[in-house]
Write a protein that binds this DNA or RNA. Structure first.
Lengths: 210, 210
DNA sequence: GTCTATAGGGGGATAGAC
DNA sequence: GTCTATCCCCCTATAGAC
């Protein structure tokens, strides 16, 4: 029987237990509001072990941050670089995989975006994000579609902002949206599932309208 | 000559100077990462005065937070409750006023959204957000438009998510977007100005497509 | 009202036993 | 490798002079 991903994994190595605990707590509270004691408790180990394995809170955080961004960017880069899919299929794939991912880990987007604000340089330099996106098959196909008049919105950056924003924003704003719309957890999730179907339709309509 | 809004206002009352400084620092770094010393320095006063006027960091924060949310919600509520404007005009007005507002204070959205995550209850209860939005003229007009078949997307919540997301998300993600798209500050601002025109067009296309 | 000085506590990190 | 005990700095908050 395969191990549960999120459950406690008592058999995992201590180092790995600390990392999983750190991921959980950092994602939920952010760097500044997280206490190393919280991580130790979540991991079921002693505080001293955290420093034994990772030297400092800052180093542990950096590791978690890089892994988190990497997961996000790779999911995107893989979808955008598939030679075999059309533009529309790429949109569908990005939408579905991100909505599923974020529904499992709802803290991810707000964590990433707010921590990147505090470390604008340090963390992004180490990953080849720009090349992965700007040099992608997606960008070539987008350019071709514009040239052939299939879509009229000429800026791939606007396209990306819209796509990612339509996916992520509801999750980022969910506490406020739940309050405004009087939504329970399950109502909210149902709306997000609807969006898997709706966003690709909307994106197509938008790109022909501008 | 009217005073500059953002400039130092040496003539402002001490209490007001502290509040302005607190707004600046809290918005930029969030509650947990802000030190009261930072606020005192920004205000050009002594640390003890902060506690003299506001008793504690937490109380000062709550005041700033409520005012900030209030500004945001009121701008929205006013636009959505205008009896004289059409649905499309409301969209244009929300888009323009928010993009202008956020361009002046780019930290606003990420501040609000990430701090609300940490205080999901406390802060939203005190403002009549739900009524202002859900009982608005906008909602009545949206319902009428659906009934008359002018738009085909039946959920006003999805509509709102899309509208606010298309406006705010680029600002929230700007550090990453600037890096990916190799954009300078002025390039980014130009894209946001373009969006004042584009978002209403996109929204209209989306609402007829689903 | 505004300052200086300091109390008081919390949190990151380490020493040292096992 | 893992623990307990502790150091020490930093930050919030207050006491008390002016």
């Amino acid at each position: 029987m395969a191990k549960s991903k999120k459950a406690e994994r008592l058999d995992a190595s201590t180092e790995e237990k600390i990392k999983e605990a750190a991921r959980t707590v950092f994602h939920k509270k952010g760097f500044a509001a997280t206490r190393t004691r919280d991580i130790a408790e979540e991991a079921g180990i002693n505080l001293a072990l955290l420093n034994y394995y990772f030297r400092s809170k800052a180093r542990l955080f950096e590791i978690i941050m890089l892994e988190t961004i990497s997961v996000f960017v790779q999911a995107m880069a893989l979808a955008l670089n598939d030679e075999k899919t059309t533009l529309g299929e790429k949109v569908e794939r990005v939408v579905t995989s991100y909505i599923d991912l974020i529904e499992k880990e709802p803290d991810l987007p707000i964590f990433m975006l707010s921590e990147i604000r505090n470390n604008p340089d340090l963390l992004l330099v180490k990953l080849p994000i720009k090349q992965a996106i700007m040099g992608s098959v997606f960008f070539r196909q987008h350019h071709e579609a514009v040239t052939q008049g299939k879509i009229t919105e000429p800026s791939p950056i606007q396209f990306l902002m819209n796509l990612i924003g339509l996916i992520m924003f509801p999750f980022i704003a969910s506490p406020m949206l739940k309050r405004i719309g009087d939504l329970k957890e399950e109502d909210f999730n149902r709306l997000m599932q609807e969006r898997k179907r709706l966003i690709p339709v909307w994106i197509e309509a938008m790109m022909k309208a501008s």
